[in-house]
């Protein structure tokens, strides 16, 4: 790989990182609107409000960057970057199409993506603690508790796929993928997706930012661009989670004419999953803190373990 090629790949990943979260955000505006019998943004950019998020970005950039007087300034300022950058790093490892259509193929890809995604939560923790605000601190605590509960089922579900494929590399997993893995790994897929939603603090798992109780959790004191970065991190997280679920459980670029249109299949599946994320947000109320913990420890972890057993049994039976 030449230097130019590496730069081109990084530029493409960066472009995807900047564009797709905005697309998801705009889709969320419109889909949420229509699901609530509204039209969503309609003015900005003239055509169905396509430029709404651009306008939002400009607005955020104009706002004053406030750091509370009692805050720990350095940590407070650093937190949004910690929250955002891991998702960008993860995108590098996600294969988009067959062959070499990936930012960088990583040997222990599954562990890489899960490990780096887990780091992003540190941003919320740092921000919440450094804000010197009791609501922020509560939000951080809830974030941490939620992460610890849901990291395990997510890992177990990911491990099940790695076990099925006999490799930890994301490209390797896709290389092994057969259509009947869909029903075989279905439970693991549901567990992975649900746990991922919880890790992103998306509704119905948005207890850490429950606005009726703790305003906006760890992000309460943030304004302007730093706040926008946290929001961007959330949408980048949706992109990463959906792309990862696609790759691990839905066969990524596999599909009819996948030799030429593999990347389209990946995008399509990711898009459908992103729609599901939005759909769930509109449909379900927020889970209470104890319900959250109960779902993880008594629901998802046993399911993930059962999936592991099933994977192992089938794998041995085939061999």
């Amino acid at each position: 790989m030449t230097v130019v090629e590496v730069l081109v790949r990084l530029a493409l990943v960066l472009a995807a990182f900047l564009v797709f979260p905005l697309v998801i955000g705009q889709t969320e505006h419109k889909v949420m609107g229509h699901m609530q019998a509204r039209v969503g943004p309609i003015y900005a950019g003239a055509f169905h409000g396509w430029a709404q998020l651009v306008a939002d970005g400009v607005k955020f950039a104009q706002k004053e960057d406030v750091v509370p007087a009692g805050a720990d300034r350095r940590v407070f300022r650093l937190a949004p970057a910690i929250a955002l950058i891991p998702y960008m790093v993860v995108l590098i490892a996600i294969p988009v199409g067959s062959g070499d259509l990936v930012g960088r193929s990583i040997d222990a890809g599954v562990f890489f993506v899960l490990a780096v995604m887990g780091v992003g939560v540190l941003g919320s923790l740092m921000g919440g603690w450094a804000s010197a605000n009791k609501f922020s601190l509560l939000g951080s605590l809830r974030t941490a508790a939620q992460l610890m509960a849901y990291e395990l089922p997510m890992l177990l579900a990911g491990a099940s796929v790695a076990m099925a494929a006999g490799t930890l590399s994301l490209t390797g997993i896709l290389g092994q993928w057969e259509w009947w893995w869909l029903p075989w790994q279905a439970v693991g897929g549901v567990v992975f997706f649900t746990a991922g939603l919880a890790e992103l603090q998306r509704p119905p798992f948005d207890m850490p930012v429950a606005d009726s109780e703790i305003i906006f959790g760890a992000y309460t004191e943030y304004t302007g661009l730093r706040f926008a970065l946290f929001l961007l991190a959330e949408y980048a997280g949706i992109l990463v989670l959906c792309a990862l679920t696609t790759v691990l459980f839905l066969g990524g670029w596999h599909g009819p004419w996948s030799d030429d249109l593999g990347w389209l299949w990946t995008l399509l599946k990711t898009g459908v999953l992103a729609f599901v994320v939005i759909w769930l947000r509109v449909s379900y109320p927020r889970l209470r803190e104890d319900q959250l913990q109960k779902l993880a420890w008594t629901g998802l972890i046993p399911l993930a373990l059962a999936q592991l057993v099933l994977t192992g049994v089938v794998r041995v039976a085939i061999a």
Partner: peptide, 19 residues
């Protein structure tokens, strides 16, 4: 019940908005 909730929102999306 969960499926019903999803169905309601999906159905609303296909209808004309009242805005």
């Amino acid at each position: 019940g969960l499926a019903k909730g999803l169905a309601v929102t999906l159905k609303t999306m296909t209808k004309r908005s009242v805005t």
